[in-house]
Nucleic acid binder design. Sequence first.
RNA 1: GGGAUGUUAGCUCAGCAGGUUUAGAGCGCUUGUUUCACAUACAAGAGGUCACUGGUUCGAGUCCAGUACAUCCCA
Length: 881
Amino acid sequence: MNIPPRYEPSKVESKWYSYWMEHGFFRSKPDGREPYTIVIPPPNVTGVLHMGHMLNNTVQDVLIRRARMLGKNACWVPGTDHASIATEAKVVAKLKSEGIDKRDIGREEFLKHAWEWTNKHGGIILEQLKRLGASCDWDRTLFTMDEKRYDSVIKVFVNLYRKGLIYRGVRMVNWDPEARTAVSDEEVNYTEEKSKLYYVRYRVAGSEDYITVATTRPETILGDTAVCANPADKRYKHLKGKKVIVPMVNREVPFIFDEYVDMEFGTGCLKITPAHDINDYEIGLKNKLPAIDIFNDDGTLSEKALLFTGVDRFRARELAEEELRKSGNLVKVENYVNKIGRSERTYAVIEPKLSVQWFLKMKEISQPALRAVIDGDVKLHPSKFRNLYRHWMENVHDWCISRQLWWGHRIPAWYYNDNEFVVAHDEDEALRLARNESGNSRLTKDDLRQDEDVLDTWFSSWLWPITCFDGINNPGNPDMKYYYPTSDLITAPEILFFWVARMIIAGYEFAGDKPFSNVYLTGLVRDQQRRKMSKSLGNSPEPLDLIDKYGADGVRVGMLLCSPAGNDLLYNDSLPEQGRNFANKIWNAFRLVKGWKTDNNIPQPESSAIAAEWMEEVLNRVLLQTDADFKKYRISEALMKSYKLFWDEFSGWYLEIIKPEYMKPVDAKTYAATISFFERLMQIIHPFMPFITEEIWQLLATRKEGESIMTSRINIKRKHNDRLSGGFEYAKEVISSLRNLRKEKNIPNSEKIDLFIKAGSDYDQTFIPVIRKMCNINNVVFTGSKVENAASFMAGTVEYFVPASGSHDREEEIERIREELDYTRGFLAIVEKKLGNEKFVKNAPGDVVEMEKKKKQDALLKISHLEEKLRELQKDVFRSE
RNA sequence: GGGAUGUUAGCUCAGCAGGUUUAGAGCGCUUGUUUCACAUACAAGAGGUCACUGGUUCGAGUCCAGUACAUCCCA
């Protein structure tokens, strides 16, 4: 069999993915087994795979594959999100490039384009996930705007409205003038930007006195309805009850006082524009000030501004500056840096704006969700996010659920006159209700006008774990009963509140139970400078290129190796490189084993028998440890332990011990044990590296069509033999010392040596055959006294001698012994200090004191051995001089 | 301004219940080795006053308080 010395991922990955698909291994149907369920955080339908998806979906696939191999009925439900604002922005841009304005073609026509776009680009990302090896049940693929999901959202809206939890209200919202929609707080990014601070004079009414106000937005002066100072500010005390004249528009407005005003900032005088600043809005409410909305929806100034009507807000700022300068009311202009909010999607500067929106009352319905996390019914990993969650849930705001977009779930409210409306599941029901409420039985559908807005995207995704099993339309259906609540949710901490928390709320409200038991929060993928990876920065590698270069397994390992839950991952190419190297290591171990000829007639060497016994032990031990890691969601830890198990223990030690001499066959017993170990190692590694493990598992033995490592079972044994593993660790130390000794004395590995061991009768001889094989030893002799003319070393408290035949550097050895002596004496000093402390001996538990005494004994013994050796060496030096 | 979290080797992190060595891992680094699975390897080695200050304790990287710095969330 001719196996290439390099593992070539591209040759096997697509082969096995097709094999898995053909045999339906990813499919799940309710049955008698315990379910293990994950619903995918649905990526944007027209999005493309980025590094965050790679990390997130690798984690999900690891958990799903592992659960499957532990005998659970694993179900990973994939799907995509309609992402209303992101998708609509893309379609608008595409139409714009064709010279089409969405307002010209109207809603119906626009939606046709949007669906066309969705069908064309939708699901690309799901195909990309397949390259990564994602074992989703693709037959269940869903879309947040497919028919069932759409109906579910409408039902939930109507239900909440009828419970009195949804209301319409005028609120200050984040207005995106480009997209002409309100966006949620979470969709606004604040960054520090250079701007200017304008100092503007306002005349005090009925006098020739002026006060100066500092503002970054002189154009909003047109909407001022008051000027305000801190009541503690002595400078403005005399203005109590006075009025001031707003420049440019010459409106008389009151001078008021409020503790909100920062006396240190600017002149200590603040202009109040309730319609265009959230803080001013609050002050306006408190002081019953009118709000003058001076902007149109597209960010131009309205008629209410009185000046600059129709002019864009930024141009208006320049015009206002000119105007104020001309009238002598501009005192000065300073450079200033302040935080500007921009829309995440369009990058337009957000305009705080009063607007009629739909809201969901959150306080009441969020209570069970708050308790669920506090009481641990829903566990967050890592748990540090619990406090954050609690803080947010205790200060929860009402949720603005309407968006001025077309792509999304249209709000099921129908107006039968200018202000009055009904909320219904469909137009027929709406008509019935409208006739009823208006008392006008002659109303027709033509008299009804449906609300133009759609719902916030999160208003559909908060139902995701329920709608994935159609639990809104068909409560208690078999899927719902079997899969809900799901097991784990894997997502990023940045959407903990506006997705995770809301799903928990919806779970209790609409399914009577939590949506999932555990939330695993991955970190963000950042670059080496800790910058978030993003397309606009151009600092993100192309995921599919990475898979081409390093293999899907290599990339998966790279993503997982250094990303404990909740910690950011600082990406660099050495990560997938390490993964690729690991795959290659596995491949070459396979090449070695597969290259052996077996011989049924040769007996199993003692060293191989011991090694196999030890390997069995260490494999089960690691399996148990990784099981504990998985229970705590320490996936990186579990991977690292599996990595070391294969690389160090299996390849570095076990294979080296059992390896037959060059071109010689291996005994059948050892070979069988080795194949069995290899199979089980592949199982342990399979969740992390599905492709190479399948490839090798299939080659290790003759498999039937339809067999696969991914449907094989992992069995975890609970018993341990500490003596065996402890004994082998000691043997490693002896072997390592013997290797060093050979090197120091220039004894070639090919030359056989004798080993004398000065030890008591309690010396554990189990691993002597292994030491003999690994160090090419002829005779092993136990002796009661030291051996003359021999090189020696200590391991633990036992002294080993090798009659020296090679040359060696005595000075160097003296130096080495001195160093060891220094260390041991230092160690002894610390132990003795402890034991010399009366309070320690009196108060510490007995076993701790005993341990210290044992440490002291061992150290003393070692020191006396070392001192003796040193004396001899020095004597020899003296003699030879 | 309010809140949360963190600060351990060059980098990324363990150290989960205070006492098994004068703190561990992976990567990186240094030196040596192309020997027969793998140089995408093997072997050996260097590298840390556990941010700082104080407290609790017989004993603190581990518990408590304060300070500094960093990151994130909310306003």
